[in-house]
Amino acid sequence: MAKSSEKLKDFKKIPGARWRNDQPILMPGIRRFQFFTNVGDRATTINLNRLAMFSIATFLTVDVGKAIVNRIPQSIYCYECRACYGTQDKCPVGISYQAELVVAARVTDYSRFLRNGGLRCIRCGSCQSFCVQYLNLPRIFGTMQILTMKALRNGKIPKKMMQDAFDQGLVNRDFIDEVSSFLKAEDA
């Protein structure tokens, strides 16, 4: 106890901060110590915290906004509970991670979409009944397939990413000709 008291004395008192002894004795309903709001525990600069809060708000807005702008608003409702993984053998093209495709569609993450076989999907809807929200998964995947192909045409997808998907057989017959032409053109 004595050592701790000496330790406490070494701290430089921050203007406006209250020491333990300065505190009101007991006030019902009021916490005496609040880690996140206590003056002594605050960051050296409040701008850092402002930056953090601004970043969080921005990222959340972008996350929701992208889904709306890209006309995949249903993807916002995904619980990401992964119940759709139960589709297993009922997926005729063997897609294992449907939730990954939904998230990829929400944020237009082409890499995640291609890696998990998004361009392989034939939009049969077998996975839809496994979704606890009964989201229209074929529609979500279909829209993202269109966006992916559009991005491919606009040169927004690196060749290596598409090449990997192509080599692993993750592109279905609807898109294979265009993908193949793209890869050939890149090689040339």
């Binding site: 959340l60 996350d63 929701v64 944020v107 993450d109 890499s111 997808i157 690196p158 290596k160 990413m161």
Partner: peptide, 21 residues
């Protein structure tokens, strides 16, 4: 390693980590 196009896609992958539910 992979060029600008790949690097520019990284923020999307990060935002994909947010679980809205």
């Amino acid at each position: 390693n992979d060029g600008w196009t790949s690097a520019l896609l990284l923020p999307n992958e990060m935002i994909g980590g947010i679980i809205l539910h």
